[in-house]
């Protein structure tokens, strides 16, 4: 009897390993060009393309899951999906709770955008999204921080004059500045925040982490990652 139970348990274990090949990729779907919802209603963007390629190289079946940004880490550690691939900067705080692969996007710069070139980004009112590293940075600077729930609202605050400038990821702001036809301009210096963007995984998932790390290394080596970066972020972007 005992052996029978052990036998089924062992069977279940091997079955479990076989199942684990479907990897659920958690993303936000609201942060172009990293990830966003395209006109068809599918997840699209730099990370979609990157993630699919990584899964192919690691020989995994991947599935995409949308999750709200605020609860993206709690849901990962609680096992509702297996990776976070959502433009998440590698920070020391996050690293205590989850693991990161090596970065697949070089350390990013954050930038200020104002309504005119003389916007007061140093001592004026600066908008940022609630609970982002950018908000933390402004709270420590000399400017008055005003926090909005979504990135959309932070930019809107500059357009309607509530804030002198908005402080966010440069890559998020760049397409908006470009499309605004001069209504929005970059002001002040770029500020390097965070340590590059990586894929987040549970700390106990070392095997999966190694697979993705190896896949990222191979993409860096053969130049496909650089090609993707240029495709989504333009010629001027940093590459490996």
């Amino acid at each position: 009897m005992k052996t029978l139970i052990l036998g089924t348990a062992a069977l279940a274990l091997t079955a479990g390993l076989a199942w684990a090949d479907t990897v659920r990729m958690g993303t936000e779907g609201a942060y172009p060009p990293y990830n966003f919802i395209n006109d068809k209603g599918e997840i699209d963007g730099f990370e979609r393309e990157l993630g699919d390629e990584l899964c192919k190289r690691a020989e995994l079946t991947c599935e995409w899951v949308k999750n709200d940004w605020d609860s993206i880490i709690p849901n990962l550690v609680s096992g509702n999906y297996d990776t976070i691939i959502a433009g998440m900067s590698i920070t020391a705080e996050r690293d205590e709770v989850i693991d990161f692969t090596q970065d697949y996007f070089p350390p990013t710069a954050s930038a200020y955008v104002g309504a005119s070139a003389d916007a007061n980004w140093e001592g004026g009112v600066v908008a940022a999204q609630t609970a982002t590293i950018q908000a933390g940075h402004i709270a420590e600077s000399g400017a008055t921080l005003v926090e909005f729930a979504t990135p959309e609202e932070t930019v809107a605050a500059v357009r309607n004059g509530e804030a002198d400038a908005v402080f966010a990821d440069r890559d998020y702001l760049a397409p908006l500045v470009e499309a605004s036809g001069g209504a929005l301009v970059f002001v002040g210096p770029d500020v390097p925040l965070g340590g590059g963007v990586g894929m987040g995984l549970r700390e106990s998932d070392t095997e999966l982490k190694e697979k993705f790390d190896a896949a990222i290394t191979s993409m860096k080596a053969d130049g496909t990652l650089n090609a993707l970066l240029i495709k989504w972020f333009g010629e001027g972007t940093q590459t490996y």
Binding site: A15, G16, V77, G79, V97, I98, E203, S204
Partner: peptide, 13 residues
Amino acid sequence: RQGSDFIVCAQAK
């Protein structure tokens, strides 16, 4: 519970 991770066996997911 391993650190902040919550891990159950694959069949219990």
